[in-house]
């Protein structure tokens, strides 16, 4: 090998590797995006038909469905695995988001069952949905920064800030579920862009 060939080989290997790890991440954006959109429409439909907001508890089923599906996708890819700092950071960001979202939702449910606790009005009044989607948008934007991908950065910003705008337009009604639908669709689009850019 000449010096130029060696350097070309190093550059190509590093680039292909980065692309492969990012492309794999794209699949999970698509999976969680589809689930988010599906659950939001399901909760909306049940809430609308029965008039009961307690269908929001269905959100707790999202990780129960999502994590086994994510595992299945990973096992279908075969045992080939590589981790780098970026993939670990992105994984950490989304795990943190999941913990924050589930905790704040569980906290709200717990307070609601307590009854007329003054904290309920604070939490619900602050707009649980919009806060979770704002967290979601932030998580997506930080993922975009870690992955050096403008599509993800912009998608995160649009989702987070878009959710605040929609919330102020619709208020805390069942229609706010469409904020999650929007976030899910943006996430799917992001996953498709990431996969396309890293073919």
């Amino acid at each position: 090998m000449t010096a130029n060939e060696s350097l070309a080989l190093i550059t190509e290997t590093l680039n292909n590797n980065r692309k492969e790890i990012t492309r794999r991440g794209g699949k999970f954006f698509i999976l969680w995006g589809i689930l988010l959109a599906f659950f939001s429409l399901l909760v909306y439909a049940l809430w609308k038909s029965t008039g009961h907001a307690y269908w929001n508890n269905l959100w707790f089923a999202l990780p129960l469905v999502g994590y086994p599906l994510a595992r299945m996708i990973r096992s279908k890819e075969g045992p080939a695995v590589a981790t780098n700092v970026v993939s670990r950071i992105v994984s950490g960001i989304w795990t943190s988001f999941g913990v924050f979202a589930c905790s704040v939702a569980a906290f709200t449910v717990l307070l609601t069952t307590v009854g007329d606790h003054p904290l309920v009005s604070i939490v619900v009044g602050a707009g649980l949905t919009v806060n979770i989607v704002l967290l979601f948008g932030l998580a997506e934007t930080i993922s975009g920064v870690a992955l050096k991908n403008w599509a993800i950065k912009i998608a995160g910003f649009v989702t987070g800030i878009g959710s605040v705008v929609i919330y102020y337009l619709t208020g805390a009604t069942k229609e706010q579920m469409f904020i999650f639908t929007l976030a899910g669709l943006v996430l799917v689009a992001t996953g498709l862009i990431v996969k396309r850019q890293n073919r």
Binding site: S6, T13, L14, A80, V81, T83, N84
Partner: peptide, 19 residues
């Protein structure tokens, strides 16, 4: 060189991935 370049960009990688 390809193996080392690949490993320089990750924390770890399994045999199947490197292959």
């Amino acid at each position: 060189l390809a193996v080392v370049s690949l490993l320089a960009g990750v924390e770890s990688a399994d045999f199947s991935y490197i292959k």
